[in-house]
Design a binder for these strands. Structure first.
Lengths: 196, 196
DNA sequence: ATCGGGGAAGACAGATCGGTCTAGGCTTGT
DNA sequence: ACAAGCCTAGACCGATCTGTCTTCCCCGAT
């Protein structure tokens, strides 16, 4: 039976996903061929097609893994904040953490979507990711007592996307700080308006 | 001599740029091969390489043409506004115009950059475009009397990028309206803070 | 009428693409 | 010991990639 200690060799599936995550994220989906992935993973090409069926499904698995990972990191980061306002703005703190990772290269769903055709599994994965972000902002705004929670969530989503773009294209991790400050201002405006 | 009346056939260079603009923008740079471009342009492959030298330089010319076109449209739109505040927010009105064009598919520099390697001519073209946007926002903020013009410009640039992303990925042209409202709030906050 | 040059058409090259298939080895449970 | 199943290595397929080269034709100027 396969040992589960730390020194155990990862399964073929795990090695493939690790290689796909590294290469797809760094160089883009279209630029990376199947041959390079199986070579880096140390896996036979036939195993890849047995496990995933096609390159497109491997891309989808890569994006879903990224989604799950981001979700986990953000949700864990939010547990550190107490007030609803701090939790709402904490999303941008979590984003800032991601921006400072050494191999950060922007939002994987955004770059993958830029190379995909409409209706493809890649676009669907990106849609799921965006829906999660949108719902999270809406829930946090509602918990903070914002009347037009969906309206504020739309604004914050713009800042969230814009920060991801700027961090990658301008090589500027401080975009998260800028976004957080703007989000704080928009939140305070939204709250003060409903007092009136 | 070649006639210059409207019925004259566009030059090989113009037809190549038109085909590149259509195909690159709609399907992405990596997905479109040279063969399809020369076929759609009705131009010999040798002519493309005589005129542009390589696919990469054709991509650069395509992005530079997009940049010039966007710049022209935005600057023309801004002449309709009178007060500095209206001119600053007018950028998002101009953006909303672009979003409603039937074949809108996001910011060309963003999608091309997602497929390019660091340091490539594509990234350089994207950098030039971003620098122009940033400078424009900074100048407009300064003309509106904002003390921290660069800080506000960074915030508005986030909204500008985020709106472009949302309009493409969510198929939601109203992202420009959302961005405009958020920009107005951030502008008013920036102005009211310096009064204190 | 002749000449010259830009462009069209497309063969060609070498590499790489996604995907399939065969053959053989290693591990595992019985 | 043996059989069943995964996995590896890599040949192979047809299509497509960027880029080069040859051939021919058409058009305009002398």
């Amino acid at each position: 039976m396969p040992s589960k200690v730390a020194t155990a060799k990862p399964s073929a599936r795990e090695r493939l996903l690790a290689a796909a995550d590294d290469l797809f994220y760094r160089e883009g989906v279209q630029s990376v061929g199947i041959d390079r992935i199986v070579q880096q993973a140390g896996v036979a090409k036939a195993s890849l097609y047995n496990l995933f069926g096609s390159k497109e499904e491997l891309v989808q698995a890569y994006l879903d893994a990224r989604h799950a990972n981001t979700r986990e990191q953000v949700e864990r980061a939010l547990t550190r904040f107490r007030t609803p306002r701090e939790r709402l703005l904490g999303v941008f703190d979590a984003q800032g953490q991601l921006f400072t990772e050494p191999d950060f290269n922007g939002c994987a769903h955004m770059t993958a979507s830029a190379e995909a055709q409409p209706g493809s599994p890649t676009q669907c994965a990106a849609d799921r990711y965006r829906q999660w972000v949108r719902t999270m902002f809406t829930d946090l705004a509602r918990e903070a007592g914002v009347a037009d929670a969906e309206g504020l969530a739309r604004q914050l989503h713009l800042l969230y996307d814009g920060a991801g773009v700027s961090a990658r294209m301008d090589h500027d991790p401080s975009a998260a700080t800028t976004a957080r400050a703007a989000a704080a201002a928009l939140f305070d405006v939204a709250v003060s308006e409903q007092v009136r």
